[in-house]
Write a protein that binds this DNA or RNA. Structure first.
Lengths: 244, 244
DNA sequence: AATTTTCATTTGTCAGACAATTAACCGTCT
DNA sequence: AGACGGTTAATTGTCTGACAAATGAAAATT
């Protein structure tokens, strides 16, 4: 771990990189305690505040956790899927909002990924996942539901579908895409007829997954994707027309 | 932005959260300059080092960038896809290694995602992407190629395939999965016969994408997935047998 | 008018100090 | 001996104050 004081990067960034590399390479195993802040400061030949800034950078990525007290210190953190979800959602949300990714692009990505899960879900779905899917579809049919609540339930339905695939890597990858899209979805107003159509598709998707019919689920998802796209387009077109 | 000194969390973590929320909600727009560290310290009623730790946390997530000098300060950063790639790859790599995700699971996820891209790639592929795919397939056929170089070329081939789908969100999502898997792939030794089979599939996939034949590309990818799985299994089985 | 110098502002870094927390250690009492 | 309680040392969290380095703007000079 060598530090170049003349580098363009901050010292704290360099130190963070050095430690991060050690973690990613497996050099520092999970739950290994790092040297104390004072020792690190001595090793890297910097002051303690600088070391602390480096450690906070790593903590922000959930790479380490810190504990106070006599036996405390900074420990290499076992990255949980749960931790990764949060970061992925933050990152995806900002990517979508800051880079003006079109609804079309985001929607396309989301449904493409979901269709990738469908065959696996059709094979492995548990009663649990099916129950969630059906419960959400039922909730969506309740009268007086706000658009926001409808969207939230929609997200829950699709998360259950993805989780049914039984592949944590896929669940993790998709969580970001699905949840990050919620703000965009919330911009849409769903009429009663729109909702009925979507709920019908949800129910038929649940049926297909239930019956292990992968091909049928895929077709239905494609139909749902198309319908969502057209819905969004008409909403945006109408909004654009009102402006003039 | 209120800070609770009695909270379980560190002050710097609370301050980082407050600012992060303001950014994600759009309250702080891109390129907006934050107050200076001294001003923030006064606003939050903490010392400057504490504020700095909070800012470093945000910098670690590429949410802000800082600049020295008279007109310097911390600015809300426009998150680039490129920045997001790096974080995604780090996170995915650690998730796979720390949580002992099986090769089977990782491989399944990767090919499921790739197959989701195939239909789009078949529609939109540019000569550029096709050229890359063919170049990499050709490179893979060169004699004397190390296993590692073969894997690297494999990654390049598949990245081109994904990029050919022309959807940056998909590219971003998949970059993590594909690159994070490389360490796992590097554990495999590819015999000449294995390589020949893989290269043949790569060529046929490129042909299918070239000819806009989505269905055919999908089938070939499925075949490649199966073959990779069986290859890995036999390698691992052989290794296990040698141990005894 | 163009150029150079000065200056104010801001981040980067350092040194030292104290508070808060926590587990281990030690002594006392039962 | 064992349980209980106080002490202590180690470690992170926070604060204060200071100086260095960078940088653009303003002022002074040519």
């Amino acid at each position: 771990m060598k530090i170049d004081p003349d580098s363009a990067k901050d010292l704290s960034a360099q130190i963070a990189s050095a430690i991060r590399d050690a973690i990613v390479s497996g050099d520092l195993p999970v739950d290994k305690r790092l040297p104390s802040e004072s020792e690190l400061a001595e090793q890297f030949n910097v002051s303690r505040p600088t070391v602390r800034e480096a450690l906070k950078r790593l903590a922000a990525q959930s790479l380490i956790r810190t504990q106070r007290g006599a036996t405390g210190g900074a420990f290499v953190n076992r990255l949980k899927f749960e931790d990764a979800y949060g970061q992925q959602i933050t990152t995806s949300t900002l990517l979508l909002s800051m880079n003006a990714v079109s609804f079309r692009t985001a929607c396309e990505a989301r449904y493409a990924l979901e269709r990738a899960c469908a065959p696996l879900a059709a094979t492995r779905r548990s009663p649990d996942h099916l129950a969630t899917m059906r419960a959400e579809a039922h909730r969506q049919a309740q009268p007086g539901l706000t658009d926001e609540a409808f969207c939230a339930s929609d997200v829950a339905f699709h998360r259950a579908l993805v989780d049914a695939a039984g592949n944590p890597v896929l669940s993790y990858q998709l969580a970001g895409a699905v949840e990050a899209m919620q703000p965009l979805m919330n911009m849409i107003t769903f009429s009663a007829r729109d909702r009925a159509k979507i709920i019908d598709l949800h129910n038929r998707i649940a049926d297909a997954i239930d019956a292990h019919e992968a091909q049928s689920a895929d077709t239905l998802l494609a139909e749902l994707a198309d319908y969502t796209q057209s819905l969004a387009e008409s909403v945006f077109a109408e909004r654009a027309a009102k402006k003039t």
